[in-house]
Design a binder for these strands. Structure first.
Lengths: 336, 336
DNA sequence: CTGAAAGCGCTTACAG
DNA sequence: CTGAAAGCGCTTACAG
């Protein structure tokens, strides 16, 4: 392995100077810089990241924590896509990202160990679970972190999110505008903030129009495809004329059940989903859905985290990214 | 941050001794050990991973590289699931995993930089692309690596894989045994080893039974759902009585097109997929498919890599994991 | 079993 | 603009 030391010796400069050149410090004469760079190139010198981290006190690596519990729902492409956004942003800022798919047990180990071992400059947490002890542990630590998805138990915390409440409200409003009045909802897990918020949006929209919120028209689908299907089966005999489904993944399961039951979408039942994952476009019929900018959430999480690392004393940042209703066929708008 | 130095001072032991205790070195008297551990616990001391890495020459972090090109097909849960296996194994061995979702440009940066910056003890590469320059660069470097998926251009290399050829052959054989004779195939990308191998298995199976390999019954679906659907549309007028689809993700697209065309699966066309992703089970009808142990592939990749790191001089390891035909409804076996 | 010392490969005041 | 020196927090022969 080529070291700074060697470059210094061969270029006739001091180690300090070589370090400056390598780090683009302007306080080096052009002549010296050229001489050093020459040798750097010739030997294909790469600064040792570990030594650099130890000396500089920064590792240039971020952590991403995704609770395994949701990981198991990896049929839902939300997390892979989020990861993509995080990864892209990290690459562009010359950061590495280390991935922690933590089951509850690993979470403990993570908190006890990784959190304080100095490997990470900061972490991004995509826990949706309301009672996650990790959030508490992070808040108590000095490690900079940002949440993807707001978290009521830690209000003074940095996060990026969408406005799930008003987005869900807008989705239901869309169904109302199309003339639907018996609107059901299939909700996500009720111990996640997204699940709760999207349900609240549903309630608000109904109330706003004086529609009753009927308990029997509210079924938990747990954010999974199978859960969505099961919820739909439960809803079938109640004959809603529209359903707001709190994730596209669940909506795919819903469509399957409706097909089996011989019901037409949107003629018999109109559907609006949430997320706009790739499956929404490919669904049959194509799914009208509230698009969430998942990639951008990942990217913003990184940018926010980097900002916090640079400016530890700035106040908490809450970033809300816009959603957008993508009208396809499942809502029936094209028939009107 | 609590340091070794502090523990030494407070416990009255030397830094060497504290280091030994922390690293479970048996050459420490019980008395001393207790005394040190007492202080360690009290101060909640966590060894600094960076300092440790620099001193020991090992970082305990592995890299996973997934080419962005396939990443964009993240609707295919293969990669997330693989990641899960890798992550689980790393956790259990106390390694961290850093994720590189590399587009071709990032790949260059990776090779030039990350490959030699000392951050990684080794890397796992899940490139399926035949001509990937990364493989060449890795082979030329001293960094230990293992491939997920064999690679003909680098035969003397460590990899874990399934036997795609014989697995595909068995899948087609199954269709043959069910009486199908006009068997088409929708192939994966022809510049991936999995794509090529699965196609070869198809050929072999047909030839074995004296069936002609008809070019018009071979259509590229590019491993994506949309590609699978497009391929099926092309196949529709040719009326095959069975199709071997080289991935479940494509098969989902195929099923959609068949439904639109009013064809019954398996009565009119029998289908066998590949992978056994969660979508296979949820498909309509449930998909018969060649199950690939994706999680296990990820885990074995880690174990193999760790083995290579420990034993740099052992010969190359090639690990082939078994596949298994999962018979559901799309092949028609249940009707017989 | 224990400790003093060198060293891992960098960065960064400090002085000139 | 440049260099000598200290230091980041550990591990690991080496000696006793």
């Amino acid at each position: 392995m080529v070291t700074l030391e060697e470059i210094a010796r061969l270029s006739g400069a001091s180690r300090s100077t070589v370090s400056r050149v390598v780090n683009n410090d302007p306080h080096v004469s052009d002549k010296t810089r050229m001489r050093v760079l020459e040798v750097v190139r010739k030997l294909n010198y790469q600064p040792n990241a570990i030594a650099r981290s130890l000396a500089a006190g920064r590792t240039h690596v971020l952590g991403v924590i995704i609770p395994k519990r949701v990981t198991e729902l990896f049929s839902d492409p939300y997390f892979p896509i989020l990861l993509q956004g995080v990864s892209t942003a990290c690459n562009s800022f010359d950061y590495a990202v280390t991935l922690w798919l933590a089951d509850p047990e690993d979470e403990l180990r993570f908190m006890g160990k990784v959190l304080h071992n100095g490997l990470l400059d900061g972490v991004i947490v995509s826990s949706m679970v309301l009672t996650d002890p990790l959030i508490t542990a992070l808040s108590a630590s000095t490690l900079p972190f940002v949440l993807v998805g707001r978290h009521p138990s830690a209000p003074a915390v940095n996060y990026v999110d969408v406005d799930n409440i008003s987005s869900a409200q807008a989705a239901v409003e869309h169904l109302f505008q199309l003339g639907r009045r018996r609107i059901a909802t299939i909700t996500g897990m009720s111990d996640t903030i997204a699940g709760v918020d999207r349900f609240r949006g549903y309630e608000i929209a109904l109330r706003e129009h004086g529609l009753a919120v009927l308990p029997e028209l509210i079924v938990d689908g747990g954010f999974s495809e199978a859960g969505g299907a099961a919820a739909m089966r439960q809803l079938l005999p109640l004959r809603p004329d529209a359903i707001f489904v709190a994730s596209d993944t669940m909506a795919v399961g819903v469509l399957r059940v409706l097909r089996e039951a011989g019901l037409r979408v949107p003629q018999d039942i109109a559907l609006v989903g949430f997320d706009d994952t790739p499956a929404a476009m490919h669904a049959e019929p194509p799914l009208t859905t509230m698009k969430q900018p998942i990639i951008a959430l990942g990217e913003m999480a990184v940018e926010t985290l980097l900002h916090i690392i640079e400016h530890p004393d700035s106040g908490p940042r809450r970033i809300i990214l816009p959603t957008q209703l993508v009208v396809r066929e499942s809502c029936g708008a094209h028939l009107i």
